[in-house]
Write a protein that binds this DNA or RNA. Structure first.
Lengths: 140, 140
DNA sequence: TTGCTAATGCAACTCGTTCGCAATTGCGAT
DNA sequence: ATCGCAATTGCGAACGAGTTGCATTAGCAA
């Protein structure tokens, strides 16, 4: 018995249909060990569902991001976008310049940005994206 | 008499030639009141130099970013990249969701990220990009 | 001024992503 | 159950930002 199905819940909440492509895309993204491009997602989806089209993958991802299930992060400008399950935005990205690895890191920095901007400058903070590029412990 | 010419200095330092298109692109970017796309830069350049090609604008911008003169920031994933003069990276971006305005803001947050990651986690921080999306004081 | 090479203009091309449309399919109503 | 219709899909064509190959032009050192 499935006790927690965020995809089904989110779809029903907004009146969208549960379909095989959507299920498959969600399974791939939500269990991926790293950020995937749309192409990579399509490839993994097709291992089980060979007929799923790339456009459907894109459409699913777009919908999921509107539903708050996934997040698009264009770490390298120019290249294809990468997708990851949504996470609280006090988590940020660490990208290693040499090996390309992307880590997540959690800190209170994002919360501090929010407080500071709101109290001192009147900005209402909705989303914070923090990307740190450098060398990971292995490559340093 | 020109007392400070970062473009000429940077070009000479690495053995590149000073050309009319490069001069014009640099003038536009370095005096722009906001971040511009390559297309917008080309349009402004052509007001004075109608023959400058879009590819030359792209090539100039790519070179300038290697020289550390400009920075590419892909604030909206999907859309065209925006370009701005390079600035110290303890300055970060505030983008208003409603009016689209992009402000700069300086704080010690970026420095703190750097220290924390280096001391506690062994990461060598080279570049920090921080983008805050929300509502500016006018739109809130 | 000359000569060599970097840089340019132009057009064709790449590639990630989107769109139009006919065929399919989920799912609420019957 | 099954019907009917709108949502969703697959497919291919289109789109737009950015890049590249190549013949021509033009810096700049000698």
């Amino acid at each position: 018995m499935i006790i927690d199905d965020p995809l089904r819940e989110a779809l029903e909440r907004e009146g969208h249909r549960m379909t095989a492509p959507r299920r498959a895309v969600w399974d791939v993204v939500s269990t991926a060990e790293r950020h995937l491009t749309a192409d990579e997602i399509a490839a993994r989806v097709r291992a089980e569902h060979p007929d799923v089209n790339l456009s459907s993958v894109y459409r699913s991802l777009t919908l999921f991001s509107e539903l708050g299930l996934v997040r698009e992060s264009s770490l390298d400008s120019g290249g294809p976008a990468h997708w990851e399950p949504a996470h609280p935005d006090d988590e940020f990205h660490l990208r290693c310049r040499r090996c390309g690895k992307v880590d997540h890191h959690t800190g209170d920095l994002v919360g501090r940005v929010r407080e500071h901007l709101e109290a001192e400058h009147g900005w209402v903070t909705e989303q914070v994206e923090l990307l740190v590029t450098g060398l990971c412990p292995d490559c340093a």
